[in-house]
């Protein structure tokens, strides 16, 4: 398979890239890691006239904590950069848990965090972690930069909120208010397959009490499911059998799965409940060990 013809541009600066998008009025697409876009153009699900390869733009491969404590992930940070980070598990356990579950190890050397968010696949691992963590995207266009909350960024399956002349230049994750805890669990039949269901949980702990609680689901709805309201039943509580079961029930209720060859809707909802319970139990157990 190979794609239909396109013009290839390899700008050296963001402004140059934005000018190319502007000049092509919606017919140009940004090419970063290409691990979703290239298969799609090969299958001819998409046939953009122009591909704008941003891999030659220097300074987009950063992953750093800024002065306000936000984690900033540039547009060319690859999945494996997060996977191999030695500090991420302590500061962002939810991201660290998801990093080694994205696609497969070879795809992870190339695909990007921000590109995965832009792709807006309902199965996307990173979208779920971003919704649970309350992150946002920084988009840059001809008139400068703007922030887009991740929940407003993903509009539906494979649809994001970027204007035709905008580039998602970074993803930003706010600091935990308290001690960060959380994880990401995913059920897949084999590595690289679409998930049957996956669950991202991110808690900010104040001592043994839950300060902020975030949760999102992938694979169990037409887009990433925002389960932040559902898991907020934990806020102000300690993690015990009763509060964990209430939270797991509420999150499972927020799922919107469909029956397909990966399982029935009931089964997928059951997986969601099991994963939420498992993540919260693990956090509660490590709390006890730390105490």
């Amino acid at each position: 398979m190979y794609p239909s013809r396109f013009a290839y541009e390899a700008p050296k600066t963001l402004n140059e890239a934005i000018a190319i998008l502007q000049a092509n009025g919606g017919e140009a697409k940004i090419l970063a890691g290409g691990q979703s876009l290239i298969p799609m153009v090969k299958l001819r699900f998409a046939s953009p006239e122009v591909l704008v390869d941003i891999n030659n733009i220097p300074g987009l491969d950063y992953m750093r904590i800024d002065e306000q404590g936000n984690l900033r992930i540039g547009a060319l940070v690859r999945h494996e950069d997060l996977e191999h980070s030695t500090t991420l598990a302590a500061t962002h356990p939810t991201l660290a848990a998801a990093a080694s579950l994205v696609a497969d190890p070879i795809v992870r050397t190339r695909g990007t965090f921000v590109g995965s968010l832009c792709h807006a696949d309902p199965q996307g691992d990173w979208s779920a972690t971003m919704v649970a963590l309350g992150g946002h995207i920084v988009a840059q266009g001809p008139n400068g930069r703007r922030q887009i909350d991740i929940r407003e960024f993903v509009l539906g399956p494979f649809t994001n909120a970027l204007a035709y002349n905008e580039i998602a230049v970074e993803a930003v994750i706010p600091p935990a208010k308290g001690r960060p805890a959380g994880s990401y669990l995913k059920l897949e039949r084999r590595v690289g397959d679409f998930a049957t269901a996956s669950v991202a949980v991110a808690l900010d702990m104040n001592g043994a009490t839950v300060g902020r609680a975030g949760c999102a689901l992938a694979g169990v709805g037409g887009k990433t499911i925002d389960a932040n309201d559902a898991i907020s039943v934990l806020v102000g509580k300690t993690l015990n059998a009763e509060s964990i079961e209430a939270a797991a029930d509420a999150v499972a209720e927020a799922a919107d799965p469909r029956t397909d060859h990966r399982g029935s809707a009931d089964y997928k909802r059951h997986i969601v409940k099991t994963f939420v319970t498992r993540i919260l139990n693990n956090i509660a157990n490590s709390e006890q060990k730390a105490a």
């Binding site: 398979m1 290839y8 390899a10 090419l31 290409g34 691990q35 290239i38 298969p39 090969k42 299958l43 591909l51 390869d53 891999n55 494996e80 497969d104 190890p105 070879i106 795809v107 050397t109 190339r110 690289g192």
Partner: peptide, 25 residues
Amino acid sequence: TTSCGACTVLFDGRPLKSCTMFAVM
């Protein structure tokens, strides 16, 4: 389709599925 890995090469020393990169890149 970026699944099987038979086309894996090393790109600057890191493994890459060569069916999922344009030669110009």
